[in-house]
Design a protein around this nucleic acid. Structure first.
Lengths: 215, 215
DNA sequence: TAGATTGTTAATCGATTAACAATC
DNA sequence: TAGATTGTTAATCGATTAACAATC
């Protein structure tokens, strides 16, 4: 039986676990472990064995009974799957406090994303730079994004202007948006919106402390 | 009937939606809308009505048929619920690239969290400061955390040392940990671990672009 | 062959959504 | 009273976990 119909889909949660596996596998590699089993990963990351096994099955077919996966093979299968090999260019909009923090963060490139330019509505901010990235005025966005064929947009503007920026990005042919503004954006369904909200995470922490510590 | 048995629990997902509601409500307040209904929030944030209504019911009892909630009342109910009124002190460990970005970010205080000190293992880094926060050597952590009665720890160290730092924090009486390292931490179950992994979010974006754009 | 590990099919669990009753 | 909106109980959906068969 051929596996023509076997569309291996993967849930968003599973997708988000993959970088953890990757990290663990790299530490295995550093320890000269040439093979790594799902059980080892599960134990190392304190996850359920079956979950790990299922996640890996969606990403690689190099698993062999009794031996597990070749550590390096699995690393490259996951990186391949996530598209870390082909670097994706990104632009960031909103060079305020958060935006500048993101611009100066160096960890994105090893995850296959490279910020190529930043934009800000404030004419005084435009023309400066942050973290080695030039900041342009908003008017240049559409032209530049189109010419550079950028596929990822990072929104770091205030809530009020986030939807507007989103529309602009969609119009410029962006495929995925990393949204740091505290709003749910409206976009065509083939555009992926990944919401990242520090306030949302803080809510979880704050609530827990409040509960445990009392008021 | 008294509501003694009515332990209103709330899911983590619901908890994370509350800051979005808060943001919407504040914009309502700015527009002088004295009342806001669940349906208005749902429409504004493009969420399901019932979901919003259920979330709000867990947080406030000020909803009235036909009128909805008093905008300001609901704001303060949510802030009360999340513990945004009582500021919680936090310490940050690891003043590297990411750590410094977090230290210089100004948005945490309005979510009820205040970073009071940072620590780093590197003796050269200790003694300096970032974003107006002093950076201390690791040896001072236990003493300072205990004396300041800090309840939140922020881990921004490399994956390899994250568990070690976690243990140290737990030993110092911390109640909740915001973990930026790409590992799942092992801690007593009454300690809340909130994982924040930029790489995990990037994986989702990267995969989508890869799928749409092809390789 | 026995044992470890993979990978799949079925059961469970939790969150979201739908239907409805209650109330101002 | 009629209508809008709340809040609850039941149905659906999706992800996780458990049980098991396949394989080296």
């Amino acid at each position: 039986m051929e596996n023509i119909n076997k569309f291996q889909t993967i849930s968003k949660q599973a997708l988000q676990r993959l970088p953890y596996y990757l990290n663990f596998l790299k530490s295995q590699k550093a320890k000269k472990q040439s093979n790594t089993s799902a059980s080892m990963i599960a134990e190392g990351l304190r996850l359920n064995q079956v979950q790990v096994r299922k996640d890996l099955a969606a990403v690689s077919s190099g698993g062999r009974p009794k031996t597990g996966y070749g550590t390096e093979d699995l690393i490259s299968d996951i990186e391949q799957f996530l598209g870390y090999n082909n670097t994706h260019d990104a632009i960031l909009i909103g060079a305020g406090n958060l935006g500048r923090s993101l611009l100066s963060y160096k960890g994105f490139e090893e995850c296959g994303m490279k910020i190529v330019a930043a934009f800000d509505i404030d004419k005084h901010v435009a023309g400066t730079e942050a973290g080695g990235h030039p900041i342009f005025p908003m008017e240049k966005l559409e032209d530049l994004a189109g010419r550079l064929k950028v596929k990822i947009g990072i929104i770091a503007v205030p809530a009020e202007s986030a939807q507007e920026v989103c529309d602009l990005l969609v119009g410029s042919g962006i495929l995925a948006i990393w949204n740091f503004a505290p709003v749910y954006l409206d976009a065509p369904e083939d555009i992926l919106i990944q919401n990242e909200n520090m306030a949302a995470s803080l809510a979880v922490l704050s609530k827990h402390v409040e509960e445990k510590f009392g008021r």
